[in-house]
Amino acid sequence: MKKHRVLLAAVAILAVAIIGCSSARRGEAIGRPVQVSSPEIQRGQIVFQQHCHRCHPGGEGGLGPSLNNKPVPSFLMKTQVRAGLGAMPEFDKHEISPDELDDLMRYIIFLRRAR
């Protein structure tokens, strides 16, 4: 039981550290250029610009929280896009098609890794 509590505390501390300490800022100006090359990631960038940028500008926080410093796996992000969460509305397949959603995930992960 004690080992599980220690593990739980370690996970919580690690998550807070990752979320709290790393910067979400990206872009050429700030020294973290986002050089989009592959067609899938380019398509994902357009989907992000059309649907996500307004609340998560460049993956930073704004109306919504930042994305670039959140280690959330793709399947959870996809679920949140389709189902919404709290103030975030849902985006159905007519707004973001399944293929576009896959491209969007590729772009978000690419953005997260840009350093």
Partner: peptide
């Protein structure tokens, strides 16, 4: 614990 971390980002 994961939910608590997520909710910390919630509007």
């Amino acid at each position: 614990a994961a939910c608590a971390c997520l909710l910390a980002g919630c509007y």
